[in-house]
Simulated assay, not measured.
Amino acid sequence: MHSKLGSVIHKQAFPRMRSVVNAALAVVALCWCSAAPAESPPSVRWIVFDFPPFFIEHGPAKGQGIYDRFLNDLKTELPGFDHRLEPGSPNRGEALMKRGEPVCAISRIRTTEREAYSLFADHPYLYILPVELVAGENAQGTLSDYVEDGRLSLTRVLQADAVRIGVIENRRFGQPLDSLIEGALDRHAPSIVSWPADSPSFDALKLITSGRFDAAFVYPSELSTIAGSHRQTRFATYLLREMPSLVPASVSCTHSAVGRAVIAAVDKLPRNRKSVRNLQAAYEALLPSDARDTYRRLLARELQK
């Protein structure tokens, strides 16, 4: 009788004990999973440098450049990454790119040289007006001889060594202008004065006024920033025959695992999203009124292609 009772108790107690043990194991497993550290998102470093009004690294408006704001929006649109800033200069950023570091940039113009060590998003986030030549009064008479149908032939200007043009060392504008500049530098032509600078926002107009050179390459969107202290000096701007009507700017990263992941994520974003529209409006606001009207006309034509 006692053994039968013990057998019944054992049969009834064992399932209950097994349930208790299973529940305890489940709690332990849950606690272990909760305590296990989550995998860190891949880290990407964004190249930034002082380039008002695009990037602003100093002063009360720090971080309020139009590219600063766009980059902040982009970081929100790409939540799967640990976004960090890589302050420096254009030359340092280009060196990091060439070394294949996990870095990206939003302010790059696509060139054949850069494609060898960089990835670019499929679609540009912004079209900008191409660089122009800005000249002081002493050079304007000479340059007028090289204007054809309202545009300056830089090829002829460089061939004749007609004026001295200042250009920041290693700055890229796109083809064929880059090749023309490099060709002049290779033959040590006096028409190109290479100017070392840590930032592309050097005061070109001040250097023209002081006689360092006669003219310089400047984007229309830069003029509003650098021309303020030179309103009494008469400068002339020249459209270049060699440049396209608009230049696309794209997000770019290195050929690294992180770089490929960032570009793939950017390519999935809607092309006409709010951050892009805001950047477009901010860029247009930088342009002089006549250039703004031209830009809008050219942009409408480009977007219809």
Rank of each mutant, 00 (worst) to 15 (best):
H10K: 14
H10L: 14
A13Y: 10
F14A: 13
F14M: 15
V27M: 07
V27R: 05
V27W: 06
L30C: 15
C33F: 15
A36S: 13
A36G: 00
S43W: 06
V44Y: 08
V44P: 05
R45N: 01
F51S: 05
P52Q: 11
I56E: 07
G59T: 07
D82M: 14
D82P: 12
H83R: 13
E94F: 09
A95T: 11
L96P: 02
L96K: 07
L96N: 09
R99K: 15
E101T: 03
E113N: 06
R114D: 08
A121Y: 05
A121R: 00
Y125A: 01
Y125G: 01
V131N: 06
G136A: 08
G141P: 08
L143D: 00
L143C: 12
S153E: 10
L154V: 03
Q159W: 09
A160C: 04
A160N: 14
I165L: 07
V167F: 03
G174Q: 04
L177A: 01
A184R: 08
L185Y: 12
D186N: 11
A189G: 15
S194Q: 15
S201N: 10
K206V: 04
I208R: 05
F217A: 01
V218N: 04
P220C: 09
E222R: 09
S224F: 07
I226D: 02
G228M: 10
Y238S: 07
L239N: 06
E242L: 02
V247A: 00
A249S: 13
A265Q: 11
D267M: 06
L269E: 08
S275Q: 03
Q280N: 11
L286W: 00
P288M: 08
P288T: 02
D293S: 08
L299V: 03
R301H: 14
Q304L: 07
Q304D: 10
Q304E: 09
K305G: 15
